[in-house]
Amino acid sequence: MTVSKKTYYINISDGEIQSVSTASPWNFKIEASDEEISGLREIFDQGHSTGWQNFMRAHVPYVQYHYDRENDALDSQLLKTYEIIYKLGDEEARHHIESMGILPEK
C-alpha cells in the first residue's frame, strides 16, 4: 500500500502548516502524509500550550532559564519539529537545518 504524500509549507515561528505556498510566509517545504502532518500539528499544539506556560512562569523572575522545566519542554518540542522537517523536507530544508547545527549527528 502506497501512502499518498502532499506538499506543505511550514512556518516554524507561528506553528503554521499550509498547503498553498502563497497563503502566508513559510520557512520550509515538506512532503508528508496525513498521518505525518497530524504528528507535526500535535507538536505545534504542544509548543503553543508550553509557550503559554512559559509566559505565565516568566513573571517569576528568580527561576533561571537552565533550571526551568517549561523551557526544557519548549526546547525539546522545537528540536522534534526540526527533526520532522529534516526528515520530510526538501533538499533546501535539510541543508538549512544542517547549517544550523542543532540536530545530533547520526
Rank of each mutant, 00 (worst) to 15 (best):
M1S: 13
M1C: 08
T2F: 09
T2Q: 10
T2V: 12
V3P: 01
V3C: 07
V3I: 08
V3G: 04
S4Y: 03
K5N: 14
K5Q: 12
K5D: 10
K6Q: 15
T7Y: 14
T7G: 08
T7H: 15
Y8L: 02
Y9W: 13
Y9G: 02
I10F: 02
N11M: 03
N11R: 10
I12K: 04
I12Y: 11
I12V: 14
I12P: 06
I12T: 06
I12E: 02
D14E: 13
G15Y: 03
G15F: 02
G15I: 00
G15C: 03
E16R: 01
E16N: 05
E16M: 06
I17K: 06
I17R: 06
I17V: 13
I17F: 01
Q18V: 00
Q18D: 15
Q18A: 13
S19C: 13
S19K: 13
S19H: 11
V20A: 03
V20Y: 09
S21R: 12
T22F: 04
A23F: 13
A23Y: 14
P25V: 11
P25Q: 12
W26F: 15
N27W: 04
N27A: 04
N27I: 03
K29Y: 02
I30G: 11
I30P: 07
I30D: 06
E31R: 14
E31A: 14
A32I: 04
S33M: 07
S33E: 06
S33F: 04
D34V: 10
D34L: 11
E35A: 14
I37K: 11
I37H: 08
I37Q: 09
S38D: 12
S38T: 15
S38M: 11
G39N: 10
G39P: 01
L40A: 09
L40R: 14
R41V: 04
R41Q: 07
R41G: 05
R41H: 10
E42I: 10
E42A: 08
E42F: 14
I43S: 01
I43G: 00
I43M: 00
F44T: 09
F44R: 10
F44V: 06
D45F: 10
D45I: 07
Q46M: 05
Q46E: 02
Q46A: 04
Q46D: 01
G47E: 00
G47M: 07
H48L: 13
S49C: 02
T50E: 05
T50N: 05
G51C: 03
W52E: 15
W52R: 15
Q53H: 07
N54I: 15
N54S: 10
F55G: 08
F55H: 14
F55N: 08
